[in-house]
Design a binder for these strands. Sequence first.
DNA 1: GCCAACGTTGGC
DNA 2: GCCAACGTTGGC
Length: 174
Amino acid sequence: MSSTPRYWLMKSEPSAFSIHDLRGAPRQTTSWDGVRNYQARNYLRAMKVGDPVLFYHSNADPPAVVGVAEVVREAYPDPTAFDRSHKHFDPRSKPEKPLWDMVDIGLIRVFARPLPLDVLRREPGLKKMELLRRGSRLSVQPVRDREWNIIVKMAEKWGESLKPAVYRKRSAKI
DNA sequence: GCCAACGTTGGC
DNA sequence: GCCAACGTTGGC
């Protein structure tokens, strides 16, 4: 990263929380709790209000970038770490000295068509992207400016290409 | 369901 | 501080 990252990618398993869940959430906003990896946490702490985020569906069919969100609240303690009954409870994190943080994000856009991982892999400009690195497991990661621009353009084209096909079908009175 | 890649834990 | 064992992630 040449300077402070401004663009990000966040992974979620759609069976746990999808971009459609975000669309249906109050104020189309959610807190991003449950991150229990130090590198991902440090990226959460680097996020600024207004930073754009690619929303990625992992463990999905197909795995894909599905839309855009933005940071609406900067890092603050993740209360699920204090909750003994919670799946992500961590006794090392105390309210007086929190170990894990979260941010809030708000929905910006749901792509017309999810942009699949294998399509991203075919784009030469994305060769160095963290998401595409072999064995990459980081659930919160920075995205380079150039990568961001490429992906947003790809998503537009990818969605548009669907519409003419559907339109043709309909107008052909099949 | 399989399994490679990775992060974490804990014995020494 | 090393490293084997283990648990998790996530594509396939």
